[in-house]
Computed example of a mutant assay.
Amino acid sequence: MILGVPKEIKPHEYRVGMTPTAVKELTAYGHHVYIETLAGTGVGFNDQDYIDAGGFISPTAEHVFSTAEMIIKVKEPQISERKLLRERQVLFTYLHLAPDLAQAKDLIKSKAICIAYETVTDHNNKLPLLAPMSEVAGRMSIQAGAFALEKSRGGQGILLGGVPGVNAANVVIIGGGVVGSNAAQMAIGLKANVTIIDRDINVLRQLDIQFGGKINTIYATNTAIEDHVIRADLVIGGVLVAGAAAPKLVTKAMIEKMKAGSAIVDVAIDQGGCVETSHPTTHDDPTYIIDDVVHYCVANMPGAVARTSTVALNNATLPYIVALANKGYKQALLDDKHLRDGLNIYQGDITCKNVALSLHLPYIEAEKKLNE
């Protein structure tokens, strides 16, 4: 198979779809990999590194898209990239379609085969290709929150862990999954007071055991969320429904009751955000203030630590890329139910139920579509 890796063009996105190590793995199977020139420079990989791994350097994104049978990316294709997709071309990347009708319509129109990292599952019904970036984003959320609480950003001017004789900050984490547990780990390390809210009692039990009683665990009800949010210094939004738009668990009315100078980091912003007042921001301009509450809603948080994120992501995606290349996309998808869960759009039809429901568009079951 011919694979293509274009340079990411989303603002301040330095990650790259494949490392030289991943390219070497694919070329060892006899596949050809075309990498757009300078695609890896943001994470320290130059063109020669890819050549040494057996790859070919393409002069432009247009050349990559026109040459490759399968495109490997990190972030969702931007408008200019979507115009380059063609019928039956495979796109394997993060898509986050639920809050993005324009992208979904373009991908449907392209008739490409669009597989989303964030909805691929595993035998434990977890999300193995989302997990590494959720780990990064969860840990970064505490750094971002500490930054947002600084007076120069509009925050209260408090230190998360306090100092002897001064109270530590109250950190409330909504969602006890990968993002939430990693955020808690960092917040505990900084000696903040940490509360995790989740609707799954078994998750709360696990977190209580994991952190040895160093956190407060609360069962999620509307009342519980409101009570803890309005008393928080920092709120981390880490909820996820695979493929679907994030539920708006923190309302504008709650924001109005929060302390002036408190902060919110909405990690769920890629899926539309779990805070009613959230909208996507960039690393250039990461925060804004509504009702005296600082909002940090950067949609590609892991891009700020691009080297770590790229290697972690490649470790997770490589086996799936190899399967798609070795077997061909159709056989690979038919053979592996969990990879098939990642199929969001197939030749003009939405094949992920949660995406279809979120966008109010027709849905067809992936297996049925593949067997037509």
Rank of each mutant, 00 (worst) to 15 (best):
G4L: 06
V5G: 11
E8I: 04
E8F: 01
R15S: 12
M18W: 01
T27Y: 07
G42E: 07
F45T: 03
F45W: 08
D49I: 08
A53V: 07
A53L: 10
A53H: 06
A53I: 04
G55H: 09
I57A: 10
V64A: 04
V64H: 09
I72W: 02
S80E: 13
R88E: 06
L91N: 10
L91T: 09
Y94H: 03
A98K: 00
A104Y: 07
K105D: 13
D106N: 07
K111D: 11
K111C: 09
C114A: 10
I115R: 04
T119C: 02
V120E: 00
N125L: 14
L127W: 03
P128Y: 00
M133C: 02
G138A: 01
R139F: 02
M140G: 03
I142H: 11
Q143N: 15
Q143M: 14
A146F: 03
A148M: 03
I158Y: 05
P164S: 06
A168D: 02
A169G: 12
V172N: 10
I173S: 00
I174Y: 09
G175W: 05
G177R: 01
A183I: 11
A184G: 05
M186H: 11
M186A: 13
A187Y: 05
G189D: 11
K191T: 12
T195L: 06
D200T: 08
I201Q: 12
L204G: 06
Q206M: 08
K214E: 10
I215T: 01
N216D: 06
T217L: 08
N222L: 09
I225H: 09
I225M: 02
D227G: 05
D227S: 14
H228N: 14
V229D: 04
G238R: 05
L240G: 00
G243K: 00
A246W: 01
K248G: 01
T251N: 06
K252T: 15
A253I: 11
M258E: 07
K259H: 15
A260W: 10
A260T: 15
A263Q: 07
A263E: 09
I264T: 11
V265H: 02
A268D: 02
I269P: 13
Q271A: 08
G273I: 02
C274W: 02
C274L: 04
V275E: 04
E276Q: 13
S278F: 03
H283T: 02
H283Y: 07
H283D: 04
D284H: 06
D285P: 04
D285Y: 09
I289W: 12
I289Y: 12
H295K: 10
H295M: 03
Y296L: 13
G303V: 00
T308Q: 08
T308G: 05
T310L: 03
T310C: 01
V311C: 12
A312H: 01
L313Y: 07
N314T: 09
N315P: 08
N315C: 07
T317C: 08
I321P: 00
A332C: 03
D349L: 15
I350D: 13
T351C: 10
T351N: 10
N354S: 13
H360G: 07
L361E: 11
E372Q: 14
